[in-house]
Amino acid sequence: MWEKLKQRWNVQSGWDVAIILLVFACTGFSIMYIKRALFDWVGLTDAATWLRWTANILVILPLYQVVLLAWGWLFGKFEFFWQFEKRMLDRMAGIFRR
């Protein structure tokens, strides 16, 4: 599994893979807490499901990208995550180009 991830992400060592996975984990936990606090503050905890989903897409998804870059920078992998973000945004834009 580590070798597949090294090849897929084009990194040199297993430590790079471990750091990348750690950054994804930290980002996920951070967003979970930010989302809970933000939704409580705005009052979306008891809102309709469609409203929560809309807020997730319009607010939380872009916030995830910023937090991912911040954690990547803290762990010294900013360049990797910057390239990762650009590829992901290009794929998302490709959906609308078709």
Rank of each mutant, 00 (worst) to 15 (best):
V11H: 03
I34R: 09
K4N: 14
L21F: 15
C26M: 14
V59P: 00
T49W: 10
V11G: 08
V66A: 15
F29P: 00
V17D: 12
S30P: 04
A70Q: 00
I60L: 02
E79V: 09
L44Y: 15
W2N: 14
W2F: 15
F96T: 09
T54I: 07
K77R: 09
T27R: 08
A48C: 04
L5M: 13
A70W: 06
F78A: 03
L74E: 00
K35H: 07
G28H: 03
C26S: 04
G28R: 03
I20L: 12
K4W: 09
G14A: 09
L89D: 14
V66W: 03
A55D: 00
L63H: 00
L61K: 08
M32R: 09
R97M: 10
K6D: 03
W2T: 15
G14I: 14
R91G: 06
D90S: 12
W41C: 11
Y33V: 13
F84W: 11
K77P: 02
A47L: 14
N10V: 00
L5S: 11
W9R: 01
G76L: 07
W2Q: 13
S13D: 14
C26N: 02
R87M: 09
K77S: 02
M88P: 01
E85G: 05
W15S: 15
W2M: 11
F80Q: 07
V42M: 06
G76Q: 07
S13H: 01
W41K: 05
A93L: 12
W71M: 01
D40T: 09
R91N: 11
F24G: 00
A47S: 15
W53R: 06
F84P: 00
V59I: 14
W50S: 09
Q83Y: 01
G14K: 12
F84L: 12
L61A: 15
V42I: 14
G76T: 04
P62R: 06
C26Q: 13
L61D: 13
N56I: 02
I57D: 05
Y64M: 11
D90F: 07
W15R: 14
F75W: 01
I19N: 04
T27K: 04
M32A: 07
Y33S: 15
M88V: 11
L89Y: 07
G76I: 02
L44C: 05
R98S: 06
F75P: 01
F39I: 02
G43T: 09
L74C: 11
K6H: 09
R98W: 06
P62C: 02
F96I: 08
V59S: 12
Q83G: 00
L89A: 10
A37P: 03
G43K: 05
R36T: 03
R97T: 04
D16F: 10
L69I: 08
A70D: 01
K77M: 14
L21M: 15
L21K: 09
S13C: 04
V67Y: 00
M1K: 13
V67D: 01
T49V: 13
F29V: 11
N56T: 04
R8P: 01
Q83E: 05
V23L: 03
D40P: 00
I31L: 10
Y33A: 12
I34Y: 13
A37M: 11
I34T: 10
Y64C: 10
L21V: 13
R8F: 10
F39P: 03
L74S: 05
G28E: 05
G94P: 04
F96V: 12
W41D: 07
A48P: 14
F24L: 12
Q12H: 08
